[in-house]
Design a protein around this nucleic acid. Structure first.
Lengths: 392, 392
DNA sequence: CATCGGCTGCGGAACGTTCCAATTTGGCCT
DNA sequence: AGGCCAAATTGGAACGTTCCGCAGCCGATG
């Protein structure tokens, strides 16, 4: 359809797109074209994005500019096969010309469900969870969802706040790494609201939700078995928060392995604290205060392990030579530390992707996926001493 | 106003809240109460959150349940002083009873502006930027804004995607740590759209936007001056991406300090690469290949510095004893590394807060804040050798 | 007794999409 | 020409808020 541009007054452009006889004569001053079978007069007024008014362009603006209806523009935006190629191009040109930005809020209002998914992470400052978040985010992004990432900073109160905030945006689903001390109702409320929820890395006792987590128990068991094979008999456990499920499981694996080897468990060697470097440094000091015959330690995670390594060094001892240290998670730093950290490798990327897939599946209406327990592997590096021949 | 609950049929509750004569006689079967001056009949049907239908409760549902109009409920939600205390309580009870969740999309549609702010970070996997993001997020969260965090992973293409995604949500403003190679138009489009934009940590050449960044040049200068004071004369620079403004500034400070000391700059000692550990490890190898008389190096950031330290160790050398290493940023790991990293401390927290305040100010209609250059401090630890007495 | 003004509360019109049903268009076959 | 079918396009009614103007009610004031 050719467009006859008539005139421009100021920033207002007046265009005639087609000509047809009006019911009561012809539109103002336009001669009937001889031999014209059928015609249509369309007068349209353009207002290129907020020049006359400071307003974002809308679907209707695009429609006017392109000389189609808003419905057609909507179809183009959803790349529906129902629109003719030529029309589609015209609409796209209009979109570029007016600098149109789609209004997701309006769409969400009309559609039942939006394209945002909530990601609530207990500790974005922890590289392990940051890596996880980045992995999950990528999956969603390529699936056309916008992840809303929020950090609960291990505070159930803050977690409740961010959950509410995100819920107000009408998300399609949630991935949550629950903060420590999360109440079951915090999660259950979401599920009862009909939202797909997947827990990542941490279960919450008393909540029936799909959970994607590493095999903590098995990993800890493997690590301790490795230490036992190296000849260690007095092995400590530097824990994280004792009230978390993850710590319970890892500590459980530690106990399993010792018990299986016929060794009694010395509760003095089980040391709890925050899952941080600082806590690891303090932990090793606390250990020496109660027992000086310990030769190895399994740590709740790599940060604690790095803390233990640092604490040892402060005392003039070297991990891997004077004391065997094993971490958990295999964060990027573990490989580069010195000595390189022996650790239980969790395939963060794979778990993150799996969690994301689980949510996507539920969003598409599949039955909730079963909880997934990811296999873990012991990565032997230097801090356990194995590389130096037989330990001590 | 007392509520007379009449009856409940299934999950439907029918309530009469007040009684008054209707225009044409009395409402179905209800006797005129003797002596009643004025009355009002309100029949309301309750549907506790999606029991009869699977639908989220809305403002109107709350209004019906509480026996007020939707306008009043809206006022309550905005904690307007225009509603009576008693009414407010009744509304709140209704909200709790129906498990109402506010619909931000609908509000955004009606209001010009939403409460989301976009945070686009170039590399969430980098602890420095993760720390920054967490700091910024906290400020927004307490100011009642919902930050949408996205990771551009240093890709301008992905950055464009996430910017569009977030823009569709109608954000009130943006904080951006631009990806490497960001085109000025990518940012300018936002600014011309009338959005408050603050750049954090990295300027973009050719963009007039408020920018909050550390004093890279001064930091590098201080670091090199420190090395000069320790007696070093052949000092390398292990850079990040040479095409970034940050690298340009840090390298500039390095050159300034050498020039001020009357030393010529040996271009072979300026080594570029990615701002990662791996790149640092390779960098030190590349350095030895071209010059074996170098005794110190300034690194683009702490990750590179840690890489250099690791690379040295692989060759049997120790940072701080055989070679002085200085990093930049002072990430958490710098303090805990071994040897502890001498580094130029950037007050990430303060810069993040400042950036957030700048955006908040602009959202509230203030004039754009001037760009802010944060002061930096050299933190002397072990890796530069100063703690071992005079270097080498 | 009318009038006024301060409190409260109400109704309805946006906001910018999507989706449905209806309509027009155009091609093809009688 | 006419009829028919598929393809393309359209108008209008939602969706759940906010905000504006208006309306009762009450006690105080003239």
């Amino acid at each position: 359809m050719p467009v006859f541009c008539l005139t421009t007054i100021g920033t207002i452009q007046i265009r005639i797109e087609a000509i047809e006889p009006s019911r009561d004569g012809l539109a103002g001053g336009i001669r009937r074209l001889p031999g014209e079978e059928r015609a249509k007069v369309v007068l349209s007024v353009d207002d290129p994005a907020g020049q006359t008014r400071n307003r974002r362009a809308t679907l209707v603006d695009i429609a006017r500019h392109a000389g189609v209806s808003k419905s057609t523009v909507s179809l183009v935006l959803q790349s529906s096969p129902l629109v003719r190629e030529e029309t589609r191009e015209r609409v796209h040109r209009a979109i570029d010309a007016l600098g149109y930005v789609y209004n997701r809020s309006a769409a969400n209002l009309r559609r039942a469900q939006s394209n945002v998914v909530g990601m609530v992470i207990n500790d974005l400052g922890n590289p392990f969870f940051a890596e996880l978040a980045v992995g999950i985010e990528r999956v969603f992004q390529t699936a056309g969802f916008v992840p809303l990432i929020a950090n609960s900073a291990e505070s159930p109160i803050r977690q409740a706040e961010v959950l509410r905030s995100i819920r107000e945006q009408g998300p399609a689903g949630f991935i949550i790494c629950p903060a420590r001390g999360t109440q079951p109702t915090a999660i259950d409320d979401l599920i009862r609201g009909g939202l797909p929820v997947v827990l990542a890395m941490r279960r919450v006792a008393g909540v029936r939700a799909t959970c994607v987590a590493p095999d903590n128990r098995d990993g800890a068991r493997k690590a301790v078995e490795h230490l036992l094979r190296l000849g260690h008999r007095r092995i400590a456990y530097f824990g994280g928060f004792a009230d978390t499920v993850a710590d319970g499981e890892r500590q459980g694996g530690y106990r399993d392995a010792l018990a299986a080897a016929g060794l009694a468990i010395d509760e003095a060697l089980v040391i709890s604290g925050a899952p941080t470097r600082e806590s690891g440094m303090q932990g090793i000091d606390r250990l020496w205060a109660v027992a000086d015959d310990v030769t190895a330690g399994l740590c709740f995670n790599d940060l604690v392990a790095l803390g233990v390594v640092a604490g040892l060094r402060r005392q003039g001892r070297e991990a891997g030579r004077d004391f065997a240290v094993i971490g958990f998670d295999d964060i990027a730093e573990a490989r580069h530390a010195s000595p390189a950290l022996t650790t239980v490798a969790v395939d963060t990327k794979a778990l993150g992707e799996r969690a994301a897939q689980a949510v996507l599946g539920m969003i598409q209406g599949n039955r909730p996926m079963e909880s997934h327990v990811g296999a873990v592997d012991l990565v032997v590096r230097e801090s356990c001493g194995a590389r130096l021949g037989e330990a001590m």
